[in-house]
Amino acid sequence: MMAAPTPLITVDAATKTYKLRSRSLRRVNMTALDRISLVINRGETVGLVGESGSGKSTLGRAILHLTDLDSGKIVYNGNEIQSLSESEFRPYRRKLQMVFQNPLTSFNPMMTMESALLDSMRLVSELDLNTKRRRVLQLLDQVELSSRFATLYPYEMSGGQLQRAAIARALAPDPDFIFLDEPTAALDMSIRGQIINLLLRLQRETSVSFIFVSHDLRLIRYIADRVLVMYQGQLVESGDKAQIFDHPQHAYTQKLLSATFVGQAERAQARSRTET
């Protein structure tokens, strides 16, 4: 851990409402983000938990400028980024990357891994094409894929291999921040552990910051430095891992914890307390 954490990304009162129209032509507003404020420090892993539809992905998409905010501020490295136009934001793209939930659909089916990785380095202007091609192989090596994967198409690879390649793709332009949107949810158990350890190792090597979204509290406990809990678009709890897991303050967090295998002990305790 760092001595004096420096804020890399600051989100201040971010609000986003989707206007849905139900079948009866009644307008339904769905608040995906409700005055969310958070700070992400350089080189730390922030675990983000919450049920489906609680706004986790919207938060990531907003930081990555894939969704506009209704109000609020996002500051990256001292620069306000949420109000920029797409072309003004482009220089920041290489520093803010993302790994998607489903590795099978997050690669262009028409591109080999090499072209996909080269494509993600399109804003890296200081390297020439040959250097980039060598960097592709180096990146594949970093995520423990052999160089023959460079010539493969997505349909020729397994989910676990593709997710490694997706991590390589996110790392390719040398980012400061990667939003990991449930990167292990679509993978089977044995692959999950490998991907998690890979992420931990890469973070040690590159000091990139992560937001790690997951439903799996054990995973969050293992990987995250700090934990944020979202519930219906609001940030209901945030704090150090130990604090969240040992002394959850909000009712939703308590419910979430007791619903897992990890929470079984606490559940049993609570039960015996009520019985006696």
């Binding site: 990555l64 894939l66 797409e86 072309s87 482009r90 793209r93 290489r94 803010l96 990357q97 993302m98 998607f100 939930q101 489903n102 659909t105 997050s106 690669f107 262009n108 089916p109 028409m110 494509d119 993600s120 399109r122 804003l123 793709r169 332009p173």
Partner: peptide, 20 residues
């Protein structure tokens, strides 16, 4: 998702259309 990924990679909209 791969179209989103193309945007994240910094493709201009017209490059997203033609390349991806």
């Amino acid at each position: 998702e791969f179209v989103q990924a193309a945007k994240v990679a910094g493709n201009r909209p017209i490059a997203v259309v033609f390349r991806h």
